[in-house]
C-alpha cells in the first residue's frame, strides 16, 4: 500500500512538459514536490495566480498571497495575478491542461463525488464542479477504500455528484486505473506487493484486468 506521498509521486509521472496544471487540496497539492525539475510546467491557483512557487520562508510570508487551500505561498518568476472570473475563464475555456483532485467516490463511468455528505458535511464544491466540467484530463488521487473499509471505486456514486463522465485516471494507494469510456476500471498498475486479487476484492465497480499487471515504478 502506498503512502500519500507515494500516490503523489506516482501522479507526478503523468505530468508533461509545457502543461498548465490545477492541483486540488490534499494529496494533489503534494504532487508539486515530485515534478521533475527539467519539466517546464505552470501551476494554476483558482483564486487568481498562474505560477505557484514553494511555500515561503518565515520572512517571505505575505497574507495577500495564498493558494486555494488558503495556505501561504510564493510566486515563481513569470507569474501572473488575476481575478476569479478570469481564473475560471481559463478553466472553463479549456486552457488548463491537467486537473488533479481528490474524491470521496468515483464510478465506473467516470462520475466523481467529492463535495457533500448529506446531513453530515456541508462544505461546498468550491471550484471542483467548474474544473471537472471543463478540464481535458482529470486524474483523481484518493485512497482505494474509505476509513471504514468500503470501496470508493463504485458502479455508481452514492453521494451527490460533482461531475459526470469526467475522470480519466485514478491513482490510489493500491493501484493505477483508467476509466473505460464503455464503463469499468481498467487496471494498469498495482502498488508494490499488492495482488490483483486484493484490488479486485476492494473494487466494487467493474474491474477490467487484461494480461499481466505490472507493479508501479516511481
Amino acid at each position: 500500500m502506498l503512502k500519500k506521498q507515494q500516490i503523489a509521486q506516482r501522479i507526478a509521472k503523468e505530468v508533461k512538459n509545457g502543461q498548465y496544471i490545477n492541483l486540488g487540496i490534499g494529496i494533489p497539492t503534494l504532487v508539486a514536490n515530485y515534478i521533475p525539475e527539467d519539466l517546464e510546467i505552470v501551476l494554476q491557483s483558482e483564486n487568481g495566480l498562474l505560477g505557484i512557487g514553494p511555500f515561503p520562508t518565515e520572512e517571505q510570508i505575505d497574507p495577500d498571497l495564498i493558494n486555494a487551500g488558503k495556505q501561504t505561498i510564493t510566486m515563481v518568476k513569470g507569474s501572473v495575478l488575476f481575478n476569479s472570473a478570469e481564473s475560471f475563464a481559463m478553466i472553463r475555456g479549456g486552457h488548463v491542461h491537467l486537473t488533479i483532485l481528490g474524491a470521496m467516490e468515483v464510478s465506473e463511468n467516470g462520475d466523481i463525488a467529492n463535495w457533500k455528505i448529506p446531513g453530515k458535511m456541508v462544505k461546498g464544491m468550491g471550484g471542483a464542479m467548474d474544473l471537472v466540467a471543463s478540464a481535458e484530463n482529470i486524474i483523481v488521487a484518493m485512497q482505494h477504500c474509505s476509513k471504514s473499509g468500503e470501496s470508493k471505486l463504485l458502479k455508481s456514486c452514492s453521494l451527490p455528484i460533482t461531475g459526470i463522465r469526467c475522470v480519466k485516471k485514478i491513482v490510489t494507494d493500491l493501484a493505477v486505473l483508467e476509466v473505460d469510456p464503455e464503463g469499468g476500471f481498467i487496471l494498469k498498475e498495482r502498488a508494490p506487493g499488492v495482488s490483483v486479487e486484493e484490488i479486485k476484492s476492494k473494487t466494487e465497480g467493474k474491474l477490467i484486468v487484461k494480461g499481466e499487471i505490472p507493479e508501479m515504478e516511481f
Partner: peptide, 17 residues
C-alpha cells in the same frame, strides 16, 4: 444544519461569472 441560515452553494466559477 439547524435551519437558522439559508445557503445557496454555487460552483466557484459560476459564482464569479
Amino acid at each position: 444544519l439547524s435551519g437558522e441560515l439559508e445557503v445557496d452553494l454555487i460552483p466557484q466559477g459560476t459564482l464569479a461569472e
